[in-house]
């Protein structure tokens, strides 16, 4: 077990005042067999008017409304998490075997699948490494080329992308081979940005894997939320009224604590 302290803050500055602002956030670590929450706090500014709930996948969601004029929005979440082994025993929800909006298997996904050969004797874990190796060849890491709406198929067409695209492609390929897979949002040890990886299902449990770094998602990964693809578990969504430019700043720090 490793104990981590995390500090996560997103701050949006609006160039003009906005109002009638609804938000839906997922920025609180998820409790599971592989992760125990020791301490967790979060706040929303301005107003700190928020309610908590669970979405259909069991992710904690923070939702709320700010009616009055405001020119910034800040969400901060911090706490302490104990991370155990990379395995979550769970009954399979067959949903994760079927393609979703951003992971549909179109020509580019089919093409990459056709280059992959498994032998009968290979375990699911071995297959995952083979798939990930293949994706590393097909996709180069490059920010700014794709967006949150880019599908797995489109990312493959472009041949470039960020962690979200690597995860979508990995999921699409896994599902194509009958391996249940899901999208995961979370934090990585260190300072920087939020990250996305996947979990695949083998026998009776889920295992984390990070296709962007082509390695298991362990150690140093804190999971926030999961879903079929990005759209099921986006970390921050909002709609508001007003014409404005927005500037997003994200602060994230995850560090081990000595016990």
């Amino acid at each position: 077990m490793i104990r981590y302290r995390y500090k996560y803050k997103t701050h949006i500055t609006f160039s003009e005042n906005i109002f009638s602002h609804h938000f839906l956030l997922r920025g609180i670590p998820m409790e599971s067999e592989s992760q125990k929450i020791i301490q967790s706090e979060c706040s929303v500014m301005p107003g700190d008017q928020k309610s908590f709930g669970l979405d259909t996948f069991g992710n904690t969601v923070v939702s709320g409304y700010i009616g009055e004029y405001h020119n910034f929005f800040e969400f901060s979440s911090e706490g302490i998490v104990d991370v155990y082994q990379n395995k979550i025993s769970e009954k399979l929800n067959p949903l994760f075997l079927y393609s979703s909006k951003l992971t549909q298997s179109m020509s580019n996904v089919s093409e990459i699948c056709s280059t992959i050969r498994f032998s009968e004797s290979q375990s699911v874990h071995e297959k995952i490494f083979i798939i990930s190796n293949e994706i590393s060849k097909a996709l180069a890491y490059m920010p700014g080329v794709t967006s949150v709406h880019t599908s797995a198929d489109d990312a493959l067409k472009i041949g470039k992308g960020v962690c979200q695209d690597f995860a979508h492609v990995m999921i699409a390929v896994c599902r194509n081979f009958g391996i249940a897979a899901r999208y995961v949002n979370g934090f990585m040890e260190g300072e920087g940005y939020t990250h996305a990886w996947i979990e695949y299902y083998c026998k009776d449990a889920w295992y984390g894997f990070d296709p962007t770094h082509n390695r298991p998602a362990d150690p140093g990964y804190i999971k926030l939320a999961h879903g079929r693809d990005y759209e099921d578990c986006a970390l921050d969504k909002g709609v508001f009224k007003g014409l404005t430019q927005q500037k997003l700043e994200v602060y994230l720090k995850v560090e081990q604590i000595q016990q």
Partner: peptide, 8 residues
Amino acid sequence: DDLIVEDD
């Protein structure tokens, strides 16, 4: 626009 969700 006539409807609004606050505190769920």
